Amino acid sequence: MKVTALNVSIKSWGLYNDQEIFLVKWENSDGSYVEFTNYGATIVSVVVPDAGGDLSQVVLGFNKFEAYLADTCYIGSTVGRFANRISRARFTLDDREVLLEANDNLNSNHGGFSGFNSKVFNIDITSDAVIFSLISEDEEGGYPGNLELKVKYTWTESYELSITYQAISDKKTIANFTNHSYFNLSGINNNITDHSLLVNAGKMLEMREDYLPSGKVIPCGAGRFDSDKLSDKLVMNDGRLTGVNNYYILDRRPGPGELQHACTLKEETTGRSLEVFTSYPGLMVYTGDYLSSNFPGNRNAALTEFGGICLECQHYPDSPNQPGFPQAILEPAELYEEVILFKFFYNN
């Protein structure tokens, strides 16, 4: 591992299965910074200024590596091989039934027990990027193909955090990677219900009670986010406050090399905003209804329900079992490449 970026530092952060875990910090000239760990190719910190110039953490994360071992909420991690749920933990590919790990009742979620959130990645730090890589072996978690994945992070002086996913497989398979950060722009011990959200989508997937799509594409209707307060979308269900866990189909599918504006998240008190751009066709919005942690040492907002919001750009959930959906099939030797761009800024 060679460090050539002058503004990037790296330190040992622990051991996992005899593999060394590192914490990588990439700092800007004004003191703003991001931190990553090679455990799960995870975003640990994003620290940016508010309208008054004060720096604060705006993603949920932990101070200690051991907390990530206890985490069950995928906090900040890279998700794969397939983001979101696959019904009955199985699908058919070229007349072959592929059996996956069922880690969400009868379904498979975020790659099952073999998900990339708990894998130790290799690190390559260059003058302009932090690159995490791993090899997922054929049949790991049930997925066909030896798959090589690279997760490339870049960070700029204008608070732009970019993620590029590149993958290649030696067998026909399915692939769908995303980042599972929980954003909280308030930067204090507060929930995200006062944040407002705009999603550039007029259609969404109809979801069943088990958070799997029914197969229908429907108008957003009451589920539409048009700079609405998140608190306006919360509903009391059987004595429990529930939020949003929906997949939105973005209005425009970008051409090669292009990104589309997926959403804008704002928090008035700090003046902070986050714009998300992507090459993916859709966005999963999850308001952290089941967010929890039994480990002390979270860096900002309390790790309890509605402590952060996930804005997961990805392919359609359960697409292998939904022939009417665009498919996330990766052919042998074909290059998988998708991009997510988080742009943080503040209003004076």
Score class of each variant (00 low, 15 high):
residue 293 S to A: 15
residue 298 N to E: 14
residue 322 Q to H: 03
residue 297 G to Y: 09
residue 303 L to T: 11
residue 306 F to E: 08
residue 278 T to N: 07
residue 318 D to V: 03
residue 323 P to H: 03
residue 306 F to K: 06
residue 300 N to Y: 10
residue 311 L to P: 04
residue 313 C to E: 05
residue 314 Q to R: 08
residue 323 P to M: 05
residue 315 H to L: 09
residue 280 Y to V: 00
residue 308 G to C: 07
residue 317 P to A: 06
residue 295 F to E: 15
residue 305 E to P: 05
residue 296 P to Y: 14
residue 286 Y to Q: 07
residue 312 E to T: 09
residue 299 R to K: 15
residue 286 Y to N: 10
residue 301 A to T: 04
residue 300 N to E: 12
residue 324 G to W: 00
residue 330 L to M: 01
residue 318 D to Y: 02
residue 324 G to P: 00
residue 307 G to H: 06
residue 323 P to A: 03
residue 289 D to A: 09
residue 321 N to G: 04
residue 300 N to D: 11
residue 321 N to H: 04
residue 297 G to H: 10
residue 308 G to T: 09
residue 284 M to T: 11
residue 303 L to K: 07
residue 283 L to Q: 12
residue 315 H to Y: 13
residue 286 Y to D: 10
residue 321 N to W: 05
residue 292 S to C: 12
residue 281 P to S: 08
residue 315 H to T: 05
residue 286 Y to E: 07
residue 294 N to R: 13
residue 315 H to N: 14
residue 327 Q to G: 02
residue 297 G to M: 06
residue 310 C to W: 02
residue 316 Y to T: 01
residue 299 R to I: 13
residue 282 G to K: 04
residue 313 C to I: 07
residue 328 A to Y: 01
residue 311 L to M: 09
residue 324 G to C: 10
residue 298 N to G: 11
residue 318 D to W: 04
residue 321 N to I: 02
residue 324 G to K: 09
residue 328 A to Q: 01
residue 282 G to P: 03
residue 293 S to T: 15
residue 328 A to F: 01
residue 298 N to R: 12
residue 302 A to G: 08
residue 291 L to N: 08
residue 322 Q to N: 11
residue 279 S to G: 02
residue 323 P to F: 05
residue 320 P to G: 00
residue 309 I to D: 02
residue 282 G to Q: 04
residue 299 R to Y: 00
residue 303 L to G: 04
residue 330 L to C: 01
residue 301 A to N: 07
residue 312 E to P: 03
residue 286 Y to M: 07
residue 281 P to Q: 06
residue 330 L to H: 01
residue 321 N to D: 03
residue 288 G to I: 09
residue 299 R to P: 05
residue 289 D to H: 05
residue 319 S to L: 02
residue 320 P to H: 01
residue 318 D to N: 15
residue 301 A to M: 06
residue 309 I to L: 08
residue 293 S to N: 10
residue 284 M to S: 06
residue 329 I to V: 15
residue 281 P to T: 10
residue 301 A to V: 06
residue 309 I to R: 03
residue 290 Y to M: 13
residue 293 S to V: 13
residue 323 P to K: 05
residue 328 A to T: 02
residue 314 Q to E: 12
residue 329 I to A: 03
residue 293 S to Y: 11
residue 284 M to Y: 03
residue 317 P to N: 05
residue 330 L to N: 00
residue 283 L to N: 08
residue 300 N to G: 12
residue 330 L to T: 01
residue 320 P to D: 00
residue 280 Y to K: 13
residue 300 N to Q: 13
residue 316 Y to V: 05
residue 290 Y to H: 12
residue 280 Y to P: 00
residue 313 C to T: 15
residue 302 A to S: 14
residue 297 G to I: 07
residue 306 F to I: 10
residue 297 G to P: 09
residue 279 S to F: 09
residue 297 G to D: 10
residue 277 F to L: 14
residue 300 N to M: 15
residue 294 N to I: 09
residue 281 P to N: 09
residue 286 Y to F: 15
residue 278 T to W: 08
residue 279 S to D: 05
residue 322 Q to W: 01
residue 288 G to C: 11
residue 305 E to A: 14
residue 292 S to G: 05
residue 283 L to M: 12
residue 280 Y to R: 08
residue 284 M to V: 12
residue 330 L to K: 00
residue 296 P to K: 12
residue 311 L to K: 06
residue 309 I to W: 04
residue 308 G to F: 06
residue 324 G to Y: 00
residue 303 L to H: 14
residue 283 L to H: 09
residue 313 C to K: 00
residue 284 M to I: 10
residue 277 F to K: 03
residue 278 T to R: 07
residue 319 S to W: 00
residue 312 E to D: 10
residue 296 P to M: 14
residue 290 Y to K: 12
residue 319 S to G: 03
residue 313 C to Y: 03
